[in-house]
């Protein structure tokens, strides 16, 4: 301890204090303040960059969710539209079918009617022709038959006999 006190130099202490305090003040102004400021600014910058990246990521997620929702909605809409279209198509087909059926029925009915008419007409004509033919034949036969008196008489008798039966 005595050696320590003996070694103590006031001059050195004085200069040490002057140099050190001067150094603290100088470095404070020209080094520590700008360095610490730059470091903390950079840290703040990194922090805010990370935060904004996180926010962007969240927004991205939101967007994706939105997109998904929109896609789902669109898909659902498409499905309903398809469904409606299918229903409409079915309805139209059914309607067309029924209409066609009706038309076809009508046509068939008309055809049937005209066939009937044609048939009737044909039958009538045929009857007429048959009648005519029969008349002609009858005429010829009668003319032939009536060439002799006996045969005329016989016919009259026969005919008369038929008339009574009818």
């Amino acid at each position: 301890m005595e050696k320590l006190i003996n070694d103590f130099s006031f001059g050195l202490f004085f200069w040490q204090a002057v140099i050190f305090i001067g150094l603290v003040l100088l470095l404070k102004k020209y080094a520590w303040k700008p360095i610490l400021k730059a470091v903390s600014d950079r840290e703040e910058g990194i922090k805010s960059a990370l935060e904004s990246a996180e926010a962007a990521r969240k927004e991205m997620q939101n967007l994706q969710a939105d997109n998904e929702r929109i896609i789902n909605e669109a898909r659902a809409e498409r499905d309903t539209m398809l469904k409606e279209a299918r229903q409409m198509k079915d309805a139209m087909i059914a309607e067309a079918k029924s209409e066609a059926q009706a038309e076809a029925d009508k046509i068939v009915a008309q055809a049937n009617a005209s066939i009937e008419n044609e048939k009737k007409a044909a039958l009538a004509e045929l009857k007429n022709q048959v009648a005519e033919l029969s008349v002609e034949i009858a005429e010829k036969v009668v003319r032939n038959e009536l060439s002799s008196k006996d045969k005329q008489m016989q016919l009259v008798e026969t005919m008369l006999g038929d008339v009574t039966i009818n």
Binding site: W15, I19, G22, L26, L27, Y30
Partner: peptide
Amino acid sequence: PLDFSITKNVITMLLAGLLLF
């Protein structure tokens, strides 16, 4: 006498201060 000499240690401290600065 009161001694404020620029000794070897003072010079070294000045040098260290300059280097640090």
